[in-house]
Amino acid sequence: MATHAGGLTEARPVRVQGLSRGFGDRTVLDDLDVQIDAGEFVALLGRSGSGKSTLLRALAGLDGDQRGAGVVDVPENSSVVFQDARLLPWQRVLDNVVLGLRGPDAPGRGRAALAEVGLAGRERAWPNELSGGEQQRVALARALVSEPQLLLADEPFGALDALTRLRMHGLLRELCTRHRPAVLLVTHDVDEAVTLADRVLLLDAGRIAIDLAIDLPTPRSHRQPQFLAYRESLLRALGVDPTEG
């Protein structure tokens, strides 16, 4: 199961024990255990309907009125990136980034976060004026400006075109290397998971079916034989024949 060996002194920002969730009489998550270390990048794979988003929403505390049981222990300071950028259309880009930001010099920190995602100079723009990729970069800046210990991302690149997605992968890896939050990235894209994550969890029928550490140097390439091996085993577990297509 999802027990990942680690030292006793190591901080564990995420500890999930015996988590169950259901809608009606359908069980979505079934007695789940997950741990994520500080600074660890975990990708959560699964077919649609496997409970990926339900797990993420449980960690984000966004499932208040759902039936379920279990212990969810997450750091106070966590951020969510949604599939849609979810920027407030009536607030300018900078105001979106610093929304709810506490502490001194919020505008300054917001500007720095925007510069980090390559959007310096667009502080006064309206979200509607930005492209889809730019909007998602603003959402990343908003998520990281509070220096979260845990970043929860729910298929954040799912709505972007292939080229923009590749660029966003590079940006996300760079940002995570610099800020070192623990990351849970929900995705249905095996390549994305193997490219970005330190560890891949595969969710099937409400349980962790595979817990796979990705032991590859970064930057990773689709041409590495080991990359292909990881990819193949994950695709097989998802019920896809990797030799097809």
Binding site: G61, L62, F82, L99
Partner: peptide, 13 residues
């Protein structure tokens, strides 16, 4: 309602 959810996720007062 997605904006309300956003507010929840950012723990807005």
């Amino acid at each position: 309602s997605r904006y309300v959810e956003l507010g929840d996720s950012l723990r807005l007062s």
